[in-house]
Nucleic acid binder design. Structure first.
Lengths: 340, 340
DNA sequence: GGCCAATGTGAGATCGATCTCACAATGGAA
DNA sequence: TTCCATTGTGAGATCGATCTCACATTGGCC
């Protein structure tokens, strides 16, 4: 339990100079004699000196830490992004502190509040609510750079990286319509309001552009977990005039639909066609494999990190809003509907 | 960009007392007049004062942050554990800093080195190597509590939370043998030396106890990714006298085996039986569902966090080594082998 | 009345790194 | 020879919270 703690003072003493000179030598600024500098560096090496980041942070006001607040770190989507962000930050000697909001606005507020007092340099955030965003506005006002990913919150002026939810959903439903489907169910979640709203809009726009009447009863809402999605699926397919196809708004809902349909003895794609939003590894393991709208997930994290690092470096430009296109990956979960 | 920064000084000034008195009122220690205390607290509230954790950390020497170094945060196993740890720490007002070693010892060394200078309070670590552990020993010597999970490293004296890898593997292979299999392949990884070694031992012990000769050529080694596991599977099943069953040492290898076998046109369980170590959501989506050895994953994270928090609270006892039992979950990926 | 304990409060030190400022050499130019 | 610019170095302040210590007040008690 020998708390080491080799401080600059120790190095300075070992090199027979003042703390000021030692600091100059190690950080190469100001005037330092060549020989002196060498002596200091040698001493630092010998003692295994490492600057105390906390002390540095106290002066500079900022720790080399970036906060990441995903909806849920267990969601592979966010896990992947967390990984990418961390790798990118690491290159710039920054650390990533992850605090999951669990899709709960109150928790999000508390987390941000507590991260705030840590003097964290910046935030990457997937806002839980599109409207309840005053706490984020407040945070931004205090000067901490923020990058929103996956979703955006109203009235917050900061960089954002999202995907084209509306277009992706539209493409998925277009595809189903092109295969003759007209009674198309939608499995959507309530919580991730921003993406859910946009995907719903895509669904509606597609129907409308094909002259199909929007039928409220074809929409089933649940929380975004596999379990809840199973129930929602069963609810949706228990009606007597059931849909011939479903579009699910995220990968957990897709999994729920898969299990729900299986439990009802409905087979894909013979009884029901399925397209899901968000690709996920499971999609290629099922039989048939699932047709999905894929997000460019590998680009989101690195880009978000890059935007944030630019802000940390002092870049002052108007907020940048990046919106990635999605891509329909056709597999085998959609069949042509034959007129009966 | 109005860097707020309401400090204790501001509060003290607003309440017309000294910083010392303000600190006493807010942290309730020492003697403070009731009325004075009230005035200070009221002022703090009004100004929205929050103690600067960095300044506190500089004095106390420690930030309320715990470092988590998993093998790979994208692995659902670690993502789940990260989530659980974070939730547990949050209750005690601690934050979780995640830095993935990506199963690379060198990276692990660098990470620990850089976390060290952050004055982090403690570490939860899945050591990449069982033998190359001097850097961890060093870290422990400096007084930072460490809890190892999933694997242990030699010569490091600290708490650990692992599962019964040897027993789990043995149970899996026993199960295959009980179904008549004698030529049982093993898909194992090279990197996670500790668990791989133990699971290999379980495989060997099971064979031995059933009088089956150990055949080196039935073992296929690869990195623990789906892609590499696919190749390893194909290698294993390309031999002319191929195995009738496989045991895979983790969920990524299991997925690789699934895809590899499918690409070779081999069906489960008719052509090949399969048991995997580690349950994963995908296992119940395939047809047939996969029989696995499940780890009590929901208990690992919370327990690790609890052990660490006890250490942080000053608990001084000999290192505790927890080893959870595994559980065989029988699904449909194993068939009885008929003598031909 | 005098004295000690209990109670309240503030000045200043501390944690470690860094920055400002003052001051000392040295050398070249006038 | 004198003076200023350049180069090199150290003393001390700073960041914000907390802790020690010293200094006031009170009140109770002999």
């Amino acid at each position: 339990m020998t708390q080491k703690g080799i401080t600059l003072k120790d190095v300075a003493a070992a090199a027979n100079v003042s703390r000021a000179t030692a600091a100059r030598a190690l950080n190469s600024y100001g005037y330092v004699g060549d020989e002196t500098a060498l002596r200091v560096i040698e001493a630092a090496d010998r003692l295994g000196y490492r600057a105390n980041l906390v002390a540095q942070a106290l002066r500079s006001g900022q720790l080399p830490i970036v906060g990441f607040v995903p909806g849920d770190i267990q969601n592979p989507f966010f896990a992947r992004i967390a990984h990418d962000i961390e790798a990118e930050l690491r290159k710039h000697r920054h650390n990533l502190l992850i605090a999951s909001s669990e899709e709960n606005v109150e928790q999000e507020k508390e987390l941000l509040e507590s991260l705030r007092s840590l003097s964290i340099r910046g935030f990457i955030l997937a806002p839980t609510s599109a409207t309840d965003s005053q706490h984020i506005v407040q945070l931004a006002r205090e000067g901490a750079p923020i990058v929103m990913i996956d979703r955006v919150a109203k009235e917050v002026h900061c960089d954002s990286v999202v995907v084209d939810n509306e277009g992706g959903a539209r493409e998925a439903v277009d595809y189903l319509v092109a295969h003759g489907h007209r009674r198309i169910g939608l499995l959507r979640d309530e919580s991730r309001i921003f993406t859910a709203q946009e995907r719903l809009a895509g669904y509606q726009n597609s129907l409308q552009s094909h002259g199909i009447t929007f039928d409220e009863s074809l929409i089933s809402v649940s929380r975004s977990t596999v379990e809840h999605a199973i129930e929602a699926t069963i609810r949706l397919f228990s009606r007597h005039n059931r849909p011939t196809a479903v579009f699910t708004v995220d990968s957990l809902m897709t999994q729920g639909a898969l299990l729900g349909l299986r439990s009802m003895g409905l087979s894909i794609p013979d009884d029901v066609s399925l397209v899901g939003f968000d690709d996920f590894n499971l999609a290629t393991f099922t039989d048939p494999q699932i047709t999905v709208v894929a997000q460019p997930i590998s680009e989101i994290g690195p880009l978000a990190a890059k935007l944030l690092l630019e802000r940390l470096a002092g870049k002052k430009v108007a907020p940048r809003h990046i919106r990635f296109p999605t891509r329909l990956i056709v597999r085998g979960s959609v069949s042509r509907l034959h007129k009966r």
